[in-house]
Amino acid sequence: MSTETTAKLTGTVPEGVLIGHLTPGTAAWEEARTGLTITATEIAAVVGLSPWMSRFTLWHKKAGLPTPPFEMNPAVEWGNRLEDAVALKWQDEHPGQLAAPAGTWRHREREWQRATPDRLIYPQPTSEFDVPEQATALLEVKTAPFGDEWGPDGSDEIPIHYRCQVIWQMDVLGLRTTHFAVLISGHDYREYTVDYDEAEAKLLRDAAVQFLTDVEAGHRPPIDGATDTYQTIRVQPDGLEDRDVEIGFGLVCRWDDAYEQMAKAAADLTQIRGEVLDAIGNGRRAVCEGRRIAYRTVRDGHTHSLHPYTSSKDAA
């Protein structure tokens, strides 16, 4: 299929309006995502379910206030690099269907509601001149180091923040099915299907409307324990004034208690690590009833470090 024909496939859905095929990181891409809009990747933060961004940080972003800059990490880099390969695997598994680049969309009536799906799915054209009139479903492509949050292959059991994302995308475009192509641990390929749920979509829309109302009114969300919330607070002050700032006694008590608990937890952890390492002796792993708990690495015949098995997949 020619590039021209593929381009024609990306502009027809029931409810969405195509903004364009925007390159991430460009000015046009940023403009489509900032201001009083909510994108599919942001809606989980609105409802407090995003593992990457807190409601506090998103509020600052939408209010035009400083937020920490995005930093590329290996997981994001390799997810981007592998997206085309995983999408091609899905297409190989589904002859007769074509997954084409989707672009950035807004809802036909709610212009503030935005989405950038990975792919739109169309019936496979039989010739260069056979161009389907409308997409039939969405395809989301994901990579994951472990499968803990993913259910059995073929189910709809996916991480909750991804469910928020695709319910939002389907609501924007007017499509009713999203297929997932997921590569776990670099070799475990799985597929999932999520159907549109109007009740869930309404909950997300209502939450988004309230969130944007709070942004306009200047009602900042409370500070939470997320790391990115702390990083957002760090970038708010501009400069340094040599002055004292009085803070409340209750906050001071919580400060003292938190640091005391942290010191005690650090000492407890060191003791427990010592006991586990002592129990392992010159073995490699500590196990309990078939579960792997920790493992040691060795240099020059002596213990170099002790590591926990951090997931159920590690411990399997």
Rank of each mutant, 00 (worst) to 15 (best):
G151V: 10
I160F: 11
K142L: 07
K142R: 14
V166P: 00
G103W: 05
G218P: 07
K89A: 14
A102W: 02
E191F: 10
H107G: 08
V166L: 13
Y189M: 12
V215L: 08
E111K: 15
V215F: 04
L204R: 01
R205E: 13
T116H: 06
I121F: 06
W90R: 03
F180Y: 12
I158S: 03
L98C: 12
T116Q: 12
V182K: 00
A137E: 07
D153L: 08
R220F: 01
V166D: 03
T126Y: 04
G151A: 10
E133R: 12
P123Q: 13
I184S: 04
L88M: 13
H179L: 03
F129V: 12
A199R: 15
K89W: 15
Y122E: 01
T116A: 14
L204V: 06
R205Q: 14
H187P: 06
I158F: 04
F146V: 13
K142D: 03
H179I: 02
G147Y: 06
I184T: 10
P125K: 06
R106Y: 06
E157H: 14
C164Q: 07
G154S: 11
I158K: 02
M170V: 09
H107A: 10
E200S: 13
E200V: 13
A85Y: 12
E109C: 05
L203R: 12
E93M: 14
A87E: 05
D130C: 12
F180W: 05
E111N: 13
V209R: 08
Y122N: 07
D214L: 09
C164S: 10
Y122F: 15
V172R: 00
L175R: 00
D206G: 05
R114G: 02
L175S: 00
D197E: 15
V141H: 00
P159N: 06
L204K: 02
Q165D: 08
Y189T: 08
F211P: 03
E109Y: 12
P159A: 07
A99D: 01
A135E: 01
W90I: 04
G186W: 06
Q165F: 05
R106E: 14
D92S: 13
T213D: 15
H187E: 15
V194N: 02
R108P: 00
D197L: 11
T143L: 08
R205A: 09
G147S: 11
T143H: 08
S155K: 10
A87C: 11
L204N: 02
G151K: 11
L204A: 05
E200W: 11
D84Y: 09
D197Q: 14
L212H: 07
L98D: 04
G103H: 06
V194Y: 01
H161S: 11
A144S: 15
V166M: 13
Q169D: 10
H161R: 06
E198Y: 11
